Amino acid sequence: MASLPYADLDSITGGRTTLVLAPHPDDESLGCGGLIAEACARGRPPVVAVLTDGTMSHPNSPSHPAPRLRALREAEAQAAVESLGLGAHRLYFLGLRDSAVPTEGPEFQAAAARLVRLIRDHDAGSILVTWEHDPHPDHAAAHRLAAEAARITGVRLIAYPVWGWTLPAHRCLPSRPTTGARLDIARHLPAKRRAVAAHASQHSGLIADDPQAFRLPADMLAIHDRPFEVFLFPDAAAAPAGTPA
C-alpha cells in the first residue's frame, strides 16, 4: 500500500466536500489528519463524524467512568480537529457503544440513515472510512455502514487503513482488486502531530488507574507519522482517472 502512486486531493475526493467517518475518537487524526488539513487549507473543510463513544479504551478506570471518559474523548477530538484547521461545528459524535458497532438490523439501518443525513445536509461527494480489512471489528463495521450510506446516496466510497498497517504483508492484500493513491501531506505533518497528540488519553499515562487500559503503541504512532497518507477505492469505478491498481 505504501508504494501506491501519488494523487492530488481533488483526484482522490472528487473535488467536493468529504465526510470523514472515524470509528473512534483518534482514527480521524491517525488515518487522514493530513487530508483534513489539506481540505481545510483549500477552503473546503470536510465534515468529521465519530461513530462510537470510545469508552472501552479504559473500561475499568475508577477515575474515568464511562460518562467522564466519553466527555474527555470528545474534548480531545475537538482539540484534534481544531489543530487541523477544522471548526468544531463540523465535528459530530454519533455516540454508538464502543466495540459494539452493529453490522445489520435496525441499529445498523438507523446509523446508516444518520450518515445519509450528514452527506445530504453537507452536500458531500465522498465518504472516507476505515479500511474493510482493518483488524478491528468496529473499523470493519464502520466500513460496512459507510458502504451502505454510499450506496444510498451515490457518493464515492474511500477507505483509509489504520490498524491495517500492522498486518503481515501477505494479509494486506485484499481479496478483490483495489485501487488507491497516496496524498502528500508533508506540509501538514506538524499539524497532524498536534492532532494525534491531542488524544492524550490514548497514548500517554493520562489515565493511570486501569490495568486493562488501551494505549497506542509507539510503533503504531510511528507508522502514521509519515509525509503521506494512503487512500483506497474498494470500487474500482470510483478510482481517480489514471490511478493504477
Rank of each mutant, 00 (worst) to 15 (best):
L183M: 11
A7P: 02
H122M: 08
H64K: 14
G164A: 09
E148D: 13
A237I: 09
A237T: 10
P59G: 11
L167S: 06
H122N: 15
V20P: 06
P25V: 04
G154C: 05
A197H: 14
R144A: 13
L4D: 09
R226D: 08
D26H: 04
H203P: 03
R193L: 08
A41L: 11
A39C: 13
S61W: 05
A110K: 15
A142R: 01
I152S: 11
A141C: 02
D10C: 06
R117W: 03
F233G: 06
G95Y: 05
T17Q: 14
I207M: 05
S83G: 07
A159P: 05
C32M: 14
S63K: 12
R226C: 09
V155N: 00
W163K: 10
G43A: 06
V101D: 03
I36L: 09
D26E: 14
A7F: 06
L115C: 07
H89L: 06
L19V: 13
R194L: 12
V101R: 05
W131R: 01
G105C: 08
L128W: 12
D26V: 11
A147W: 03
A141S: 04
T179A: 15
L4Y: 14
A79F: 03
V162H: 07
D184F: 05
H24P: 07
P234D: 03
A218Y: 06
P23F: 01
R44S: 14
G31Q: 01
Q109K: 14
R193W: 00
P59N: 11
A7G: 15
E82L: 05
P62K: 12
S201V: 10
L157G: 01
F214D: 13
T179F: 02
A66R: 12
T243Q: 13
L35I: 09
A239C: 06
A141V: 05
G95Q: 15
R194W: 00
P62L: 07
P65T: 07
L157P: 07
P23V: 03
R144Y: 03
T179D: 03
D184A: 08
P23N: 08
V230R: 02
